[in-house]
Design a protein around this nucleic acid. Structure first.
Lengths: 186, 186
DNA sequence: CGCGCGATTGAGTAATTTCAAATCTAGTGG
DNA sequence: CCACTAGATTTGAAATTACTCAATCGCGCG
């Protein structure tokens, strides 16, 4: 289970066995069933979660009760309500499991601790965050530039595996269109 | 001019005079007039830019020739084509000056160098990037959740100063609506 | 005074949503 | 193996929203 995490780190930074074991000691594990909540609106968010196995979604529910998916996360991705996590304030997002899930959990305290103790981990998270920033910029441009059909095709191209694992309703909610409209586009 | 940068760093991390002077030696300065380009599509992007004075916009031009503003940057903000900068590949964005501008320029080599040499700078950029990530998530949710009017009001609330400095046409392009539609909403 | 840029207004068109109903599909229990 | 059900997807039709294109307005500056 922790091999996935090690490989994930080592895509960016080399680690000795000792270093990795030390890092790993700052994580806890968690398993959840399909449809279980990882984070609910209003919760304090204790951890950032690395997905070892399974698939989750993070979404916000608006005043009219409609969900808007901010993020999916599958194997090798991180997910949490970052706003809530970094500022240790109540969550405005809900995160739940689309499939059965195995997670490695990293508290903010432990994140800061390993970043302070191991310079290369701070480097890892900096670069990771930069990549994430760029990915979100791309998504914003795609929301501004492209109509629903083009956004659908871009997503299909970017994450072909996703479509076997989530219903179209959720894809629609991620793309920002109604499921009926999405259905008419395909 | 460099005082702005020092204060910017010191909002997050304390610095000695020596440390700051050393950091500053890795920046160059640049001044541009209104309407000048900082980055054009296809350019290699040599720097990340810290805005000492003035206002810029970063935008993408789609196939139909329409511009979509990804980011504004004013005093105390950073701006570049991050995709192009971090991967040292040609820019897909254009960045130009809405006002006369003074910048401090940081190359990728120098960024990596000061991050490697000064752990707390790596920490600075990590936290900076995390904040940016959260801000983009908020913007995505606002694009998914809210209609044009609500997005306008959120922007107004978030950056009241912006509206005195940029024409409504640019606001519309940032919000993802036509200028006519925006005009009818206000 | 007049030019030019930005903002507004009007009218017709295109895209998307909403609400309702029909259809399809996978999993369950008999 | 079949019938049944719940969830997911599709389709239809009307209503809404936003867009485009064109014309007009308003204001600051030379």
């Amino acid at each position: 289970m922790s091999l996935a995490l090690r490989q994930h780190f080592e895509k960016m930074i080399p680690l000795s066995d000792q270093e990795f074991d030390y890092l790993l000691s700052h994580f806890t594990t968690k398993k959840l069933r399909k449809h279980q909540f990882l984070v609910q609106e209003g919760d304090f968010v204790m951890n950032d979660y690395f997905v070892v196995k399974g698939l989750l979604k993070a979404y916000h529910t608006d005043q009219e009760g409609k969900d808007h998916i901010l993020q999916f996360a599958m194997e090798d991705w991180w997910i949490t309500d970052y706003q809530a996590y970094f500022s240790q304030s109540p969550a405005s997002l809900t995160i739940d499991c689309v499939e059965e899930v195995e997670l490695l959990c990293l508290s903010l305290q432990n994140r800061d601790k390993i970043c302070a103790e191991l310079h290369k981990i701070e480097n890892f998270f900096r670069r990771k965050s930069n990549s994430g920033y760029i990915a979100l910029q791309r998504r914003i441009l795609s929301l501004l530039n492209s109509n629903a059909k083009e956004r659908y095709e871009q997503l299909l191209q970017q994450y072909p595996g996703l479509f076997q694992r989530v219903p179209k309703t959720l894809i629609a909610s991620y793309l920002g269109v109604s499921r009926e409209t999405l259905s008419r586009l395909v």
